[in-house]
Nucleic acid binder design. Structure first.
Lengths: 150, 150
DNA sequence: TTTCACGATACTTATCATGTTACATGATTC
DNA sequence: GAATCATGTAACATGATAAGTATCGTGAAA
């Protein structure tokens, strides 16, 4: 099953925007993500609705950060793009009539719930600002040219 | 994205088989799972290849347990059905040229790795026998009629 | 030899993120 | 105000994959 990369893509965009002056167009962003401007607008609409970014039409328009990156976590972004299910496996029926199936589901869902709690906690504990700073640190440590092209 | 229910289904079948005398046909199993016999054979082929079940053709044929349930974990079954990816989210590119994207991927993959380790540990810690016993306990506690129809 | 049940192949369906085309809307520039 | 730029939105195509279906072959039991 192909993976949902919306969170990953939006984080990528947000970090670029955090180190970029002025708005970025969908077309520019699409090139960064190697995709289509419409996909960018569609996905970023969630971030806009959540107030994390702002979009402006017309000349000089585009997308810009609209929130304090210290206060937005990776989990917030995950939710802003629709908070898709984190797992690719699960039970077939929600409320099985069969007692055996119910027992199996409970065992599996217990395990999944725990893993989800861990993942949610991890994503919720990291702010975009921290992620951006850790990126800066990587650049210094690894001797990368900082701004980066894409 | 619709979830992969192979693990859940196979556990359901295995628990029934553990409390059932003689082989069960694909058709019988398919009714339990509310699906098609071909789907059953296709999915159970993995369990057979791994040696967890055995299949016999002809009159009186069907599927039967072929392993010590104490020694088979839920993780083993997950792997026997193909060990599909556990997560529905992930990064777009494996080895991004962009340093920002690489940093994002690393952060996300760290979190996913941790959650996966937890989930794998949980699934690996439970044997089919334990799962079956916990089902028995549920029946007693809840006053269910034990054998169950589907 | 008939019936039963699995084995295997091929094809269809369902789902959903992603990709694409087309056009409307609003803002800026001239 | 006309042209241009950029987003907003709708509609549809694509790709991947689990699941569903139809069909026929194979081997075992009655």
């Amino acid at each position: 099953m192909r993976k949902d990369s919306r969170l990953s893509r939006m984080l990528h965009v947000l970090l670029h925007m955090a180190r970029h002056d002025g708005p970025m167009t969908s077309e520019h962003i699409a090139k960064m993500l190697q995709t289509n401007p419409v996909v960018v607008r569609r996905t970023m609409a969630g971030l806009r609705d959540a107030g994390y970014v702002r979009s402006e039409k017309g000349h000089g328009g585009g997308w810009a950060i609209a929130a304090d990156l210290e206060k937005v976590s990776l989990l917030d972004i995950h939710r802003a793009v629709g908070g898709p299910s984190l797992f690719a496996i699960g039970a077939e029926h929600e409320n099985p009539a069969c007692a055996v199936e119910a027992a199996v589901n409970e065992a599996l869902e217990d395990a999944l719930r725990e893993a989800e709690a861990l993942l949610v906690a991890r994503l919720g504990a990291v702010s975009l600002a921290e992620l951006a700073r850790s990126f800066d640190a990587r650049c210094v440590a690894g001797g990368w040219p900082h701004p980066g092209g894409s």
